[in-house]
Amino acid sequence: MYTRRNLLRGAAALAVLSTGMSGFGPALAKAPFQTFQAPGFYRLRLGRFEVTALSDGTVPLPLPELYTNTTSEHARSALAAAFQETPTQTSVNAFLVNAGDRLVLIDAGTGSYLGPTLGKLMGNLKAAGYQPDQIDDIILTHIHTDHSGGLSAEGDRLFRNATVRVNERELDFWLKTPVAERPASAPPQHFTEAHESLQPYLDAGRIETFADNGEVLPGIGSILRAGHTPGHSSIVIEDGGRKLVFWGDITHGDALQFDEPGVAIEFDVDQKKAVETRAVALDEAASERYMVAGAHIAFPGIGHVRRDETNYDWVPLNYSASAG
């Protein structure tokens, strides 16, 4: 069975190998090629909130082999039609919300779990002008390792002053489900990594849960979007007539699942429920015309959903040099 960890390790090794093979002789250019990107953060204002998208990195994933309810050949063709190669560079995004009186991080990246092309959140947080000790709250859309792995390292909390906030049923599933009752669609290592990432905060009394569709913090709400995981929740901010919904993992990528919402992915704990949830989320976003922020949509992962002749289309946010 595919799991995030073994897939991403393999993808990282492939990336390193391809980098090492990229040159076949001495460089003849006037200057050496530079292989790094600018720091991965992007800011925008939404009423009284300032939102900073933070990149945890990208990783090449064999998406055609991971998508279900379709064939790998069809998925490969659909991605190619959107000018996306296989393996497909897939973003892992987190988001920082400055509410004026507190700094709230939505998802915490992968940490050191999933290879060297990921785990960039902390560096990009600092590049964006913040320090981890400034974070007051961390809201998890769900507890998969690519969203919670960056919370801790070697048993220590990396965000010393933060309280982690997560849907109650999500926390119970990952930390309290007896081994004999764990579904095959949730690999054992995900439970292990959930404990490793969250236990330091539990020990410090720094975890609070929120109810289905409940308020997480003043001015910050949640929508239960179960399926990908049992307590998977989108996070909502709204002010000045504008609304932004942090989707979590409603989609993986910005092509196939917009055209074909019935396509699921191996990582879904309940694929049937995830498909139903995606249909609702896409319809609502297109109907209400609010902005969404996706964890696995090409960085910065913020944009709109519109209807088209093949169900839906992703429309990235128009770039602005001003954060105002």
Results as ranks from 00 to 15, higher is better:
residue 154 E to V: 06
residue 154 E to G: 10
residue 155 G to E: 10
residue 156 D to G: 03
residue 157 R to A: 14
residue 158 L to E: 06
residue 158 L to Y: 03
residue 159 F to N: 12
residue 160 R to N: 00
residue 160 R to T: 03
residue 162 A to L: 15
residue 163 T to L: 06
residue 163 T to P: 09
residue 165 R to L: 14
residue 166 V to L: 14
residue 166 V to D: 15
residue 168 E to D: 14
residue 170 E to Q: 02
residue 171 L to S: 04
residue 171 L to C: 07
residue 172 D to R: 09
residue 174 W to R: 09
residue 174 W to P: 08
residue 174 W to A: 08
residue 175 L to H: 02
residue 176 K to S: 08
residue 177 T to F: 00
residue 177 T to D: 07
residue 178 P to M: 00
residue 179 V to N: 00
residue 179 V to L: 01
residue 180 A to C: 03
residue 181 E to T: 03
residue 182 R to A: 03
residue 182 R to H: 04
residue 184 A to P: 02
residue 184 A to M: 06
residue 185 S to I: 02
residue 190 H to L: 11
residue 190 H to R: 04
residue 190 H to P: 00
residue 191 F to D: 12
residue 193 E to W: 15
residue 193 E to K: 08
residue 194 A to D: 10
residue 194 A to G: 14
residue 194 A to N: 08
residue 196 E to G: 04
residue 197 S to T: 10
residue 197 S to A: 15
residue 199 Q to H: 13
residue 199 Q to C: 08
residue 199 Q to Y: 13
residue 200 P to M: 04
residue 202 L to H: 07
residue 203 D to Y: 14
residue 205 G to R: 10
residue 207 I to K: 12
residue 208 E to D: 14
residue 208 E to M: 13
residue 209 T to R: 09
residue 212 D to V: 03
residue 213 N to M: 07
residue 213 N to W: 11
residue 214 G to Y: 07
residue 216 V to I: 14
residue 216 V to Y: 13
residue 218 P to Q: 06
residue 219 G to M: 02
residue 220 I to N: 15
residue 220 I to M: 15
residue 222 S to G: 09
residue 222 S to P: 10
residue 223 I to N: 10
residue 224 L to E: 07
residue 225 R to S: 13
residue 227 G to D: 04
residue 230 P to C: 01
residue 231 G to H: 08
residue 231 G to S: 12
residue 231 G to W: 09
residue 233 S to R: 02
residue 238 E to T: 13
residue 238 E to I: 10
residue 239 D to P: 05
residue 240 G to Q: 05
residue 241 G to M: 08
residue 243 K to Y: 08
residue 243 K to L: 13
residue 245 V to R: 07
residue 245 V to T: 12
residue 247 W to V: 06
residue 248 G to Y: 12
residue 249 D to P: 05
residue 249 D to F: 08
residue 250 I to K: 01
residue 250 I to N: 05
residue 252 H to W: 12
residue 254 D to T: 02
residue 254 D to Y: 02
residue 256 L to C: 03
residue 256 L to M: 03
residue 258 F to M: 03
residue 260 E to H: 10
residue 260 E to S: 06
residue 261 P to T: 00
residue 261 P to R: 00
residue 263 V to Y: 05
residue 265 I to M: 01
residue 268 D to W: 01
residue 269 V to P: 05
